[in-house]
Amino acid sequence: MEKVLLKLAKQLAAFDEASLMSLWEEYAGRVSRFEPSRRWEEAVLVLGMIQAMRFKNQLFNHHWAATAAPGAAVPGTAAGGKGMPREEGLRPVPSQPAADPARRGKLLTLRPKEDGE
């Protein structure tokens, strides 16, 4: 099971966030119109994967910004220790601005459209 999930994660990581986010509205709409079907369940999983990519990039950028701050320790380092070397080629994802600690996240509620919409 774990091997399958890791393979899926590697495949998802190969996509860029902008391409995935272009599908967000479509899948959010599909998910908001519940139907007891395999197609609806798969749409929920697709939307979850899109959200997972977004979350991964935001979390990466949050940690990257923390390590870029003056005097910040590299994650995994002990006080006074050398720590772990950074992986080559890592850089902030350009589509995501640095995290603003004063700004709180927004929870999106998926609801069916009203008849008048």
Rank of each mutant, 00 (worst) to 15 (best):
W40I: 10
V44E: 09
P36N: 15
G76Q: 05
T109I: 15
A99Q: 08
R103L: 15
K113V: 12
P70H: 09
F60C: 04
L5P: 03
E26Y: 07
A13D: 14
D115S: 00
G71Q: 04
Q51D: 12
A102N: 15
L107F: 10
Q58E: 15
D100Y: 06
R54D: 15
V31E: 07
V44K: 10
E2R: 12
E41F: 13
K106Q: 07
M49Q: 13
V93N: 09
R39I: 13
E26M: 04
G81W: 03
A43I: 06
A78R: 11
L20S: 07
L12R: 14
K106A: 07
L110C: 05
G105D: 15
Q96C: 10
R91E: 10
G48I: 04
G81V: 01
L108G: 02
H62D: 11
L6Q: 15
K10P: 01
R30V: 06
M21T: 09
D16M: 01
M21D: 11
L12D: 05
A79H: 02
A28I: 04
M21S: 11
N61Q: 09
E2L: 12
L110Y: 02
T67Q: 10
D100C: 02
M49V: 03
S32H: 04
T109S: 13
E88H: 13
F15L: 11
S19E: 05
D16I: 04
S19M: 09
I50Y: 01
M53L: 13
F15C: 09
V31T: 08
P75H: 07
K56W: 09
D16T: 06
A14R: 12
M53C: 13
A52G: 05
K10R: 13
H63W: 05
K56D: 14
R30A: 07
G83D: 12
R103K: 15
Q11A: 14
K82D: 13
W64F: 05
A72C: 05
L107R: 01
Q58K: 08
E41D: 13
L110V: 03
Y27A: 02
I50S: 03
H63C: 04
G83F: 08
L108R: 03
P94F: 03
P85F: 10
G81Y: 02
W24D: 08
H62N: 05
G48L: 04
G71I: 07
P94D: 03
M53G: 06
G105Y: 07
G80P: 00
I50T: 04
K10A: 14
A28F: 03
K113F: 06
V74S: 10
I50A: 06
M49L: 13
A79T: 10
P101M: 07
L108K: 01
R86T: 02
K113Y: 07
V74R: 14
V44D: 03
A102Q: 15
L23K: 06
D100T: 12
E35L: 10
G71A: 06
G83C: 08
K3H: 12
E2D: 14
Y27E: 01
W64G: 01
I50W: 02
G48Q: 11
S19D: 14
P70K: 10
G105C: 01
N61T: 00
G83V: 01
A52L: 03
L47R: 00
G89F: 03
A28E: 15
E17I: 14
A9G: 06
L47K: 02
P36S: 10
R54N: 14
A65K: 09
R91S: 15
R91K: 12
A14F: 06
